[in-house]
């Protein structure tokens, strides 16, 4: 029983990581109806930049602030340079382009910082507690809390603010949005900018756990895609819950399902995705599916 709870807690901790990237994916989807396969890699680049600034002697908080803003600009730039020109293209084109972003940013990190792993400055205290034999770390708890706040804020922005409403409107229909006076292009740009920043926050949260390497986000991407599908592509809260469920399912499945084991744990998110897509394509909390006919 202790093992079960320990696995549950561990699952939640890794689920938080998946949820953080899923949040960024959901934000872009919500704002532009695009799934950005390059999201994780863009976040990695941001994380490297922050690490580099710290290495150069800047205080951690300041460098995070600078890079957070820079990430926003990166998102805006990517949108303007490569997404906007193809915004009317069919989905295959966009998928290929975001895969291109994925390959490009991964290689860029490799070019600039080589393949060695580097320790990322930790933001949260390193201690933890033993509760009835179950180890709960402070950092996992902090990550969860930050994510919860992030998801709640995002949800509230989309629901209650003029900006959020306008972003949703732009994603729903650019033409109708233009007719109510929304500067649609600006909204899409903001969406990419915010998503890049959230991606950076995700990288900051998970950086200390994963170490920094050009491919650090690659394994996460699959889990994040599964989380977003599970939670519903247009629900920030769904991304969070989906991430946690995927994390727990992975942790429990890898231990208690003998035919899966540690080697095949990657099958779990795929199975989750497939089942959700076939059974309830809008996900747990979503209101629209990834693909409309």
């Amino acid at each position: 029983m202790v093992l079960f709870f320990q696995l549950l807690i561990d699952g939640l901790a890794s689920g938080a990581i998946y949820a953080s990237l899923a949040l960024a994916l959901v934000l872009i989807f919500r704002a532009t109806r695009i799934v950005n396969f390059g999201q994780g890699e863009m976040a990695t680049l941001s994380a490297y930049c922050a690490w580099q600034l710290c290495e150069w002697g800047l205080p951690v908080a300041l460098s995070f602030l600078i890079v957070g803003a820079a990430s926003f600009l990166l998102g805006v730039f990517v949108f303007r340079a490569v997404i906007k020109p193809v915004s009317k293209a069919p989905v295959e084109t966009i998928v290929v382009i975001t895969l291109g972003l994925f390959v490009f940013f991964q290689s860029l990190c490799l070019w600039l910082w080589r393949a060695d792993q580097r320790a990322f400055p930790a933001m949260f205290p390193s201690g933890g507690w033993d509760i009835l034999g179950v180890r709960v770390t402070a950092s996992a708890l902090c990550i969860l809390l930050v994510l919860l706040c992030l998801a709640a804020t995002m949800g509230a922005i989309f629901r209650f603010t003029r900006l959020g409403l306008a972003m949703r409107a732009s994603a729903y229909s650019s033409e109708k949005s233009l007719l109510v006076g929304i500067r649609v292009e600006r909204m899409l740009m903001l969406g990419w900018g915010f998503a890049a920043t959230i991606g950076f926050i995700a990288a900051v949260l998970v950086g200390p756990r994963l170490f920094l390497s050009p491919t650090m986000m690659l394994p996460i991407l699959l889990y994040a895609l599964a989380s977003a599908t599970l939670g519903g592509w247009d629900s920030p809260l769904g991304a969070l819950v989906g991430g946690l469920i995927v994390g727990v399912a992975e942790s429990l499945g890898a231990t208690f399902l003998p035919f899966i084991g540690a080697d095949l744990r990657v099958v779990i998110p795929i199975a989750v995705t497939l089942v959700i897509l076939l059974v309830r394509p809008v996900g747990l909390f979503g209101s629209s599916t990834v693909v409309k006919v």
Partner: peptide, 24 residues
């Protein structure tokens, strides 16, 4: 039943799982 992005996501998953499956 899947199209576009959904198919991309699922097949990306298959590609990711394949080396692990070989090891298993």
């Amino acid at each position: 039943r899947l199209q576009g992005l959904q198919l991309a996501i699922v097949t990306f998953g298959v590609a990711s799982a394949f080396p692990q499956l070989l090891l298993k």
